[in-house]
Amino acid sequence: MIDEERLARILDLPKVELHLHHEGAAPPAFIRGLAQEKSVDLTGVFDEHGAYAYRDFVHFLSVYEAATQVLQTPQDYYRLTKAVLEESAANGVIYSETFLSPDFCGGSDVGAWREYLHAIREAADEAEKTDGIVLRGIITCIRHFGPEKAKASALCAAETAGDWIVGFGIAGDENKGKPRDFSYAFDMAREAGLRLTAHAGEFGGARSVYDAVTDLGVERIGHGVRAIEDLRVVDMLAEKGIVLEVCPGSNVTLGVFPSFAAHPIERLRERGVTVTVSTDDPPFFHTTMKREYEHLARTFGWDEETLTEIARNSANAAFCDDTTRAAILKRLETT
């Protein structure tokens, strides 16, 4: 058991989040408000309590994409970014990397994407000044949209790579296609100097993690938790220093594991894998970074030292430049 005073100190720790989907972090009230403004019918997106409603992972993807219908202009993404960062900062997040898909921001047209990116960055700069939270972007292609659309997303990534767009990845339905189908897009991003991550080992098994590492050459894996089903893959992750962006609350809510106690994050860590903690799509999964920390403290006995180590892992694995990383690490040590 952890006493409440210690839990309060744990919840107040500064946090670093590496796995956050921008649209998926939209508060339901924000999306409902935009829908009302724009007269967009979102029947079926929310339950009777106003929360996002879905049956399973595939239906979740459909609901996610339906909710994005109201995000139609760069100004909408400016407002979204402000809302997302306000919530993150309230949970003690000092640095975050958000997944952005040009498919939802101008239809993967480079010119339109630049306008959306400008609006997102403007909101992020304002939040950094007011709330002290630093944001960077990782462009993701959508796996179930197919390899050709992934190339268009990679072109948007390559054309805007720099100090703010720092990475490229892939999200979506892991059961559609193989990682190697997206090699061209990842090669394009790599050549542009972007660092690479990929969703795997959530609804795909341990082999999906192995394939993402070997076929796409990523240095981080989104989720990756089902690597635990094959200890050879776990050991490969440890040996190669591949970092896992673990989202325990998401995994439990979606039924990947039946409970926090059954979640393998502690076993992966004990086996030498570098793990980090994130929320994924927090309002969809009824979580926050504080809630993740509370579950980890109560379930595994993780204390301030352990969770500060996790935050340090995250900062060291972040795709930002070294100057930004040093500033974040300093805040972790001095707060």
Results as ranks from 00 to 15, higher is better:
Ile2Pro: 03
Asp3Cys: 11
Leu7Gly: 03
Leu7Gln: 08
Arg9Cys: 03
Leu13Cys: 06
His22Thr: 00
Gly24Asn: 09
Gly33Ala: 01
Ala35Leu: 01
Leu42Phe: 01
Leu42Tyr: 00
Thr43Phe: 04
Thr43Pro: 07
Gly44Leu: 08
Val45Cys: 02
Asp56Ser: 05
Asp56Ile: 06
Phe60Gln: 02
Val63Asn: 01
Glu65Tyr: 10
Glu65Arg: 13
Ala66Tyr: 12
Thr68Ile: 04
Val70Gln: 07
Gln72Asn: 09
Gln75Phe: 05
Asp76Asn: 08
Arg79Tyr: 00
Arg79Ala: 00
Thr81Asn: 02
Val84Gln: 03
Leu85Ile: 00
Tyr95Met: 11
Glu97Ser: 04
Ser101Val: 06
Pro102His: 13
Asp103Gly: 06
Trp113Ser: 04
Trp113Gln: 08
Arg114Gly: 05
Arg114Cys: 03
His118Tyr: 14
Ile120Ala: 05
Thr130Gln: 09
Asp131Ala: 13
Gly132Phe: 15
Gly132Tyr: 14
Ile142Phe: 15
Arg143Cys: 06
Gly146Ser: 11
Glu148Phe: 14
Lys149Asp: 08
Ala161Glu: 04
Trp164Ala: 01
Gly169Met: 13
Ala171Pro: 04
Pro179Lys: 13
Asp181Asn: 14
Ser183Val: 13
Tyr184Lys: 15
Asp187Thr: 07
Ala189Trp: 11
Glu191Arg: 14
Leu194Cys: 04
Arg195Gly: 00
Ala198Met: 09
Ala200Val: 13
Ala200Tyr: 06
Gly201Tyr: 12
Gly201Ala: 08
Ala206Pro: 11
Ala212Arg: 15
Thr214Tyr: 14
Asp215Ser: 12
Val218Ser: 05
Gly222Ala: 12
Ile228His: 03
Leu231His: 07
Leu231Thr: 10
Val233Tyr: 02
Asp235Ser: 15
Ala238Phe: 13
Lys240Glu: 05
Val243Asn: 01
Leu244Phe: 15
Glu245Gln: 05
Glu245Asn: 03
Cys247Ser: 02
Asn251Lys: 13
Val252Ile: 07
Val252Glu: 10
Val256Ile: 12
Phe260Arg: 10
Ala261Tyr: 13
Ala262Ile: 07
Arg269Glu: 06
Arg269Lys: 14
Arg271Gln: 08
Thr276Asp: 02
Val277Ala: 01
Thr288Ile: 09
Arg291Leu: 10
His295Pro: 00
Leu296Gly: 02
Thr299Tyr: 06
Phe300Ala: 02
Gly301Phe: 07
Gly301Asn: 02
Trp302Asn: 04
Trp302Val: 06
Thr306Lys: 12
Thr308Lys: 13
Ile310Cys: 02
Arg312Thr: 11
Ala318Trp: 11
Cys320Arg: 10
Asp321Trp: 05
Asp322Trp: 13
Leu329Ile: 10
Lys330Arg: 12
Glu333Ile: 13
